[in-house]
């Protein structure tokens, strides 16, 4: 099967490109996370393919085993990487839920707008609080009632 030589690696590279592209270009945060998943899973393919021996078998010892055994080390590494992947995904999704609650949207450009709005509100609050404090200080010299 020499003509297939590195077919797995080619597929890995294409999947990796697709994953990077989705994660970076899409404005929707959920789709970004899906893109990251594709990207990470593509790397699993790289590692696992590198451990394969054609005609070999899974690295589990059995009596009378005659065939070659595939390399167990990449399997171990990828088990760890899968766990890392699901951990990242769950934190990412939790962040998305919070972002939606705070800004009312999960689209990147709308979040940017919401943040600008938020900053304007904050600035307005600060200005009000400051004029209030100055007025209080000027009026009575008593403690100023600065807002929360």
């Amino acid at each position: 099967m020499q003509w297939l030589g590195q077919f797995n690696y080619y597929v890995f590279a294409i999947l990796m490109m697709a994953g990077i592209y989705i994660a970076m270009s899409r404005g929707n945060l959920v789709k970004k996370v899906v893109g990251l998943n594709i990207f990470q899973a593509s790397v699993f393919l790289l590692y696992i393919s590198s451990g394969k021996v054609w005609g070999g078998t899974a690295p589990i010892m059995a009596d009378g085993l005659e065939r070659a055994i595939s390399n167990p080390l990449p399997h171990v590494l990828i088990l760890t990487a899968i766990v890392v992947g699901i951990a990242t995904t769950s934190i990412g999704l939790a962040l998305i839920v919070r972002i939606k609650e705070a800004h009312g949207t999960v689209e990147e450009d709308e979040i940017a707008e919401a943040e600008i709005l938020y900053e304007q509100e904050l600035a307005k609050l600060d200005a009000e609080a400051m004029t209030q404090a100055r007025a209080d200080a000027a009026a009575a010299g008593t403690t100023g009632g600065k807002g929360a």
């Binding site: 899973a41 394969k52 899974a58 990449p74 899968i82 992947g85 699901i86 995904t89 999704l93």
Partner: peptide, 25 residues
């Protein structure tokens, strides 16, 4: 590719847990 343990985990995590979490989100 002979990675039975990995396949097991990927099926349980990628197709199972990850999908449930995404749907919940």
């Amino acid at each position: 590719l002979d990675a039975v343990d990995v396949a097991f985990t990927e099926a349980a995590v990628g197709a199972g847990v990850s999908t449930i979490l995404s749907l919940g989100t």
